[in-house]
């Protein structure tokens, strides 16, 4: 049985993790992999944490990723990177969007947003940090932040053999295809 690869996309509601994971799984299916995907969103409609788990390989059983099993975690938000850190494999890579979204206890002043997350995680694992939102803005649309992160993921996972452009074309809003494809490549360029 071929090795199963595990991907986690973690973020906060409204950041576009769901669309990114949809494009990702469609691309993997086109490449002939068996794919399972599991989405968890918190109870609240807004502001809860959202995670998507994608597993692919010749044959996948469990739809969820265990602790220490993720080959890659793409954190759309910094504190979510911290929350999911123990799911990362020893030799896995964590892509972190350098962006903070405080949760309600932080907003209300009953808790503090943890400091030094990036330094701490970088000291313990392979971490790639960039500001996906700023890259998306430079490309021309801040809302393509999720596709920037997707681009980085596909390169970091060595999945460039897949025709991502056509999958993106089929899944993003009409008229925004080109800008999303630009965002995708701009994200991939972050991975050296």
């Amino acid at each position: 049985m071929g090795e199963i690869k595990n991907i986690l996309l973690v973020g906060v509601g409204g950041q576009g993790t769901i669309l990114a994971s949809k494009i990702l799984s469609e691309g993997l299916i086109q490449a002939g992999y068996d794919v399972k995907m599991s989405e968890i969103h918190g109870m609240s409609q807004r502001g809860g944490n959202v995670s998507t788990q994608i597993r692919f390989g010749d044959k996948v059983y469990s739809p969820i990723v265990g602790k220490g099993e993720a080959n890659i975690i793409v954190a759309f938000e910094k504190m979510e990177a911290l929350r999911w850190f123990e799911y990362l494999k020893d030799d896995g890579i964590m892509v972190i969007n350098d962006f903070e979204i405080p949760s309600v206890p932080i907003q209300q002043g009953t808790a503090k947003y943890p400091e030094g997350i990036l330094e701490d995680l970088a000291a313990k694992a392979k971490v790639l940090v960039f500001k996906a939102g700023e890259i998306a803005e430079k490309v021309g649309n801040a809302r393509t932040m999720n596709i920037v992160l997707l681009g980085a993921l596909t390169k970091a996972m060595d999945l460039q053999g897949i025709d991502w452009e056509s999958v993106i074309m089929a899944n993003v809003k009409k008229g925004l295809e080109d800008i999303n494809i630009k965002a995708f490549h701009a994200g991939a360029d972050q991975v050296k």
């Binding site: 906060v12 918190g42 109870m43 609240s44 502001g47 809860g48 944490n49 469990s62 969820i64 265990g66 602790k67 220490g68 099993e69 504190m79 979510e80 911290l82 929350r83 850190f85 123990e86 799911y87 990362l88 020893d90 949760s103 309600v104 206890p105 932080i106 808790a111 503090k112 947003y113 943890p114 030094g116 997350i117 701490d120 995680l121 313990k124 694992a125």
Partner: peptide, 29 residues
Amino acid sequence: NTDIVRKAVFGTDTGVLQSEKVAVGRPPV
């Protein structure tokens, strides 16, 4: 999940990466 079943049956606990920092929860509101 696979972790729980593996640990229960084989007693093996995959060592996991850990940070001393604590993520603040995002409770539904």
